Computed example of a mutant assay.
Amino acid sequence: MNIRPAHVTDAASIESIYGHYVRHSVLAVDVDNPPTARDWEQRLDHLAASGYPTLVAVDDRAVVGYALLTPWLAKPAFTHTAENSIYLAPYAVGAGLGRQLLARLLDDARGCSIREVIALVADGDHEGRPSRALHLRAGFQPAGRLQRVGRKQGRFTDVDFLQLSLQPKEN
């Protein structure tokens, strides 16, 4: 498995992976229409230009997962805080790839101005349990739960917030 920076040419593969979760789970917060490949091209361009790490995991010939950081709340006071996202092709889940992608993403984040990383995990007691466990194993700490704030597939879901400090705390 090769983990490398994402390129705009990976947009169609990312669209396919994320689209699966939009259509078949409560884990992705988009409800009806997943972002298109063109949307992903623009997002990848914007993130790269902004200095946020974006990664893909590639097997022999295909992208099987991706991880990225995005601005947290997009407000000037939060420029050193980012939200992470990791999605794997369904057939790649459970083989340790999420752990590898997250570790590399956090290493890359340490190389830029990111000090805090936030993970939002939908339905952390049920469908999101593996994602919650992945982040806890990586050192993220529980930072709170918003109850019944998401609605998808005919039910309300909770969202867990987890946080990881990348650099020593300062006043």
Rank of each mutant, 00 (worst) to 15 (best):
P5E: 13
V8N: 08
T9F: 12
D10M: 11
A11W: 05
S16Y: 07
S16N: 13
G19M: 04
H20K: 09
Y21D: 09
V22R: 00
H24E: 12
V26H: 00
V29I: 08
V29F: 09
V31D: 03
V31N: 05
P34W: 00
P35Y: 07
E41Y: 04
Q42R: 14
D45C: 12
L47Y: 13
S50L: 07
Y52G: 04
T54I: 08
V56D: 06
A57K: 05
A62N: 12
A62S: 14
A62E: 14
A67I: 04
L73Q: 15
A74Q: 14
T81W: 02
T81H: 01
E83K: 01
Y87T: 09
L88W: 03
L88A: 03
A89G: 00
P90I: 08
Y91G: 02
A92H: 01
R99W: 05
Q100F: 03
Q100T: 08
L102T: 01
L102Y: 00
R104E: 15
R104T: 12
L105P: 07
A109W: 10
A109V: 11
C112N: 15
R115H: 15
V117E: 08
A122H: 01
D125P: 05
H126Y: 07
E127I: 01
E127A: 03
A133T: 12
L134V: 02
R137C: 06
F140G: 00
Q141Y: 05
R145T: 15
